[in-house]
Design a protein around this nucleic acid. Sequence first.
DNA 1: ACCTGAACACCGTTCAAGT
DNA 2: ACCTGAACACCGTTCAAGT
Lengths: 166, 166
Amino acid sequence: MTRRDEVLAVAEAVLEAEGPDALTMRRLADEMGMQAPSLYKHVRGKEDIEAGLQERALRALGEAIAPAGGGLLELATAYRVWALAHPRLYGLATGRPLHREALTPGLETATAAPLLAIVGGDEHRARALWALVHGLVDLEIARRFPPGADLDRTWRTALEVFSRPA
Amino acid sequence: MTRRDEVLAVAEAVLEAEGPDALTMRRLADEMGMQAPSLYKHVRGKEDIEAGLQERALRALGEAIAPAGGGLLELATAYRVWALAHPRLYGLATGRPLHREALTPGLETATAAPLLAIVGGDEHRARALWALVHGLVDLEIARRFPPGADLDRTWRTALEVFSRPA
DNA sequence: ACCTGAACACCGTTCAAGT
DNA sequence: ACCTGAACACCGTTCAAGT
């Protein structure tokens, strides 16, 4: 556990518990018992922290959906459950451009592998499926569906459309 | 054109041209030839400005997709074109909770009407379609698809899945 | 190698005061 | 009714200085 990883762990906890506004350099420093300028000895800046959180998010999401049994429903459910359990982290990893240059090579592909596998290796269908699942999760996290909407049913309907054979 | 609407028009222009970080009270005041505290005579605060921008976004998006001919492809294309032309405004209106209490009554429903119509009035299918289209647009705006991805083809594939009869 | 205090150029917002 | 200057409690980041 390097000092940088400690910063990232604290950052993830603060982000998830109190939201992006609470994720400030001064707050992280405080949490680690140091002054804000000292953070820059362990981390390049706030962008660097966000890049690190994206890496952690992809890794965790990938692990969450990988062991899901072969079915589309299982995969989608695992995706949904993880995203709803880590909404801010999920948003950080999908709602803005990836810091790809800072990512462990192959991580992006590895995370997406279960999606690709379930559509038989067709990358276009995999992207369409990703968009569907991401859209559902994103709108649910942002509470953008109408207040009374039955989201379980929305998910079921959406997945039925996708599982219908070509 | 009330003074509040002037603020919103300036805010939209700044947001779309330079991104959310440029959207500051001081910048807006400057653009209008006044000091930052004076803005509070025309607008309740930054939240109020964001609520006003959401209203403008929904109205404009609704107008953009309403006249699209009956086809799913036309509707989805109009949605995509508008969103890509106003990416930050689109994000403001879909990437965070709606300030529903500040919205013109019926606007949310009116904006969604074309989506609902095209699936024959089935609200669950309408939400699934919205999630799909939103997911595609959101990931495209955030440049989250792999660098070389053929997004036109992704859209085509996604819409084919949806148009297949039940 | 790691940490500090002071500083710089910013934020959103409040408030007394002016016209 | 509208605008201002000063102020408050914040930001991210740099830098000289200490150990």
